[in-house]
């Protein structure tokens, strides 16, 4: 089974989700990320979903889980690039993704992470 690649960018990890994910793949990503955070001592995780045409409750919860797990492992998570149609649908679905930081794109996401780390623990 293909696994979603995780890139190391300095103190951060970057995940770009490009495929139409099925559930198993999503679970594998959660595992891989948690391991990688510990392995690399990363302080931040960027999840790029600009290619996703849909986010349902399962994927939404996975993202929220990743953020929670990352926080326990002392890393901040930022989700970037959510498409307008996806955002509107998620709001209708009732998923607020509270506690997950968001940004327009990878560049701004990195700025956000750097600010968050500089500011110290929340």
């Amino acid at each position: 089974m293909d696994r979603i690649p995780i890139l190391k960018m300095g103190a951060f990890l970057l995940v770009t989700i490009q495929v139409d994910m099925h559930d198993r793949l999503a679970m594998a990503l959660q595992d891989d990320l948690s391991n990688k955070i510990v392995e690399t001592g990363a302080r931040g995780v960027l999840i790029d979903i600009s290619s996703l045409e849909m986010v349902d409750s399962f994927i939404g919860r996975m993202i929220a889980n990743i953020a929670s797990v990352a926080r326990v492992l002392d890393a901040e998570t930022v989700v970037v690039g959510m498409r307008p149609a996806v955002a509107i649908t998620l709001v209708e679905l009732g998923l607020s993704l509270h506690g997950v930081r968001t940004a327009l794109d990878v560049e701004r996401g990195m700025e956000l992470l750097e600010t968050a780390l500089a500011d110290g623990p929340r």
Partner: peptide, 10 residues
């Protein structure tokens, strides 16, 4: 439209 499509797919 795109938003309605996304709602249906979701």
């Amino acid at each position: 439209g795109l938003v309605d499509q996304t709602k249906l797919v979701t």
